[in-house]
Simulated assay, not measured.
Amino acid sequence: MTRFFKTSLKKRTNYIYFHADGTKTVIETNGDTEVFIELLHDEDDEAVNKYRHYEYYVTQSLDQTVNNDYGKDISLGDVVTDDALTPLEELLAWESTKEQEQLISKLRMAMTELTPLQQDTLKLFFFDGMTKVAISDLQGKSETAVRKCINGAIESLKKKLI
């Protein structure tokens, strides 16, 4: 039997149990039953709290479908989900983009100060994804020369950017 209300503290001197057939049993306090009656009332309180929790919080599921304003059934989870960035996230994304643009601009300026061979080798290695062996075959140089060229260009860029 589901309980909807708690027994007030003043009326907890006895316990009334209602049977399924409508009859009731009253358990009155004497020296031995006080703790038992208190336990029964605590169990009833738990049942009432569970019912209240279900009634107020569990009746809707995010998987449940609802009818939107246009007559289309959609998931309730889609309605309550907000994928928009917070103002702080938007500001951080904007600052990050500005920083990236500034770094790219500095990198382009620093790249123009490299030798044409260094520029070409870096382009082949980083942008075209060629291996050092493939670059050495293409340029007719040793792999060691290509590695030194790439490392030297990177060191030069680091000095100019940092």
Rank of each mutant, 00 (worst) to 15 (best):
E90R: 15
E55F: 11
E143G: 10
N30I: 05
T59R: 07
V133E: 08
F125K: 01
I104A: 00
G77R: 05
Q64F: 09
L124R: 09
G140T: 04
R12M: 13
R52Q: 10
G129N: 06
R12H: 12
E99R: 15
M1W: 02
K148T: 14
Q119E: 01
T131I: 11
T81E: 11
I104Q: 00
K6H: 06
S156R: 10
A47H: 04
E28W: 14
Q139S: 12
K72A: 02
K106Q: 12
I150W: 08
S156D: 10
P116V: 12
K148I: 14
R12D: 02
Q60R: 12
R3Y: 15
L161M: 13
L40S: 02
N151A: 06
M111G: 00
K123H: 09
S8E: 09
K6I: 06
K158M: 07
T81R: 10
A84K: 12
E95D: 01
E99S: 12
L39E: 00
D32S: 09
L114P: 00
K106N: 11
S156I: 04
V66A: 01
Q100V: 15
R147Q: 13
K6M: 03
L9A: 09
F125P: 01
G77Q: 03
I154R: 07
D128T: 05
N67M: 10
T144C: 11
H19R: 13
K24F: 08
L157M: 09
L9G: 02
E101W: 05
L117M: 15
Q118L: 11
D32Y: 07
E143F: 03
D137H: 13
V35Y: 06
E113C: 04
Q139F: 13
H53G: 04
E113F: 05
F36C: 03
S136Y: 05
Y51W: 15
D42Q: 06
T65R: 10
T97W: 08
A47G: 06
G31A: 05
A20L: 11
Q102G: 02
V80E: 01
I162F: 08
N49G: 10
E95G: 02
